[in-house]
């Protein structure tokens, strides 16, 4: 059973639909009730600050930190990736979960937000190269945890991994057949 964390930023349905298409059992978790949950997905859209505020208020922040610390499987998507870091220029007064070292910075590109498809170059052989759908104005420029990079105005980390914690700046649930394969690979990992 996969638990989709309600991060208060909407668009849980597209993640849920993507898992249904892969026949992966899942439920949306409005509160941290983790019975039967073997893996967590933290989706996210919109701003860093409000998502962190929601996670703090609803008790998720501590749960997610403990989940990761105990070596259990987690996938962060978009802002759900960014909140794993220490903080973001988008909302400097809202500390992130600090599971990964580093700061999220404003994307240096001609048009913001980055909206559309861009090539993802994996350094992990288990994932296939391809184009992903991105919607974001902030990125992690560089990280020791990078397992994929992309380019829009600048190079940035499009996916990171530390042990059982994986995170993607793009939206695999919106990235066509390729994105479905990315999710399938993560599920099987």
């Amino acid at each position: 059973m996969i638990g989709i964390v309600d991060s208060g930023s909407g668009n849980l349905t597209s993640v849920s639909h993507a898992l249904s298409r892969l026949n992966a059992e899942h439920k949306i978790l409005t509160e941290p009730k983790m019975d039967e949950v073997k893996a967590l997905i933290v989706p996210g859209q919109g701003r860093f600050g409000p998502v962190m505020a929601h996670l703090n208020r609803s008790g998720w922040s501590g749960i997610i930190r403990d989940w990761v610390a105990s070596g259990q499987k987690l996938l962060g998507i978009c802002v759900g990736m960014q909140i794993l870091f220490e903080g973001s220029e988008e909302d400097p007064n809202s500390p992130g979960l600090g599971i990964m070292e580093g700061q999220v910075k404003r994307l240096q590109a001609p048009k913001i937000p980055m909206m559309g498809w861009s090539q993802v170059s994996w350094t992990e052989p288990s994932f296939h190269q391809g184009a992903a759908y991105f919607v974001n104005g902030y990125v992690v420029s560089k990280s020791n945890y990078a397992i994929a990079t992309s380019n829009y105005g600048q190079a940035f980390c499009s996916a990171v991994r530390v042990k059982e914690t994986t995170a993607m700046q793009f939206h695999p649930e919106k990235s066509g057949r390729w994105g479905q394969e990315v999710l399938r690979t993560w599920l099987a990992s």
Partner: peptide
């Protein structure tokens, strides 16, 4: 738009 693919 370096890096973004053109959308149809």
């Amino acid at each position: 738009m370096a890096g973004l693919l053109r959308r149809i």
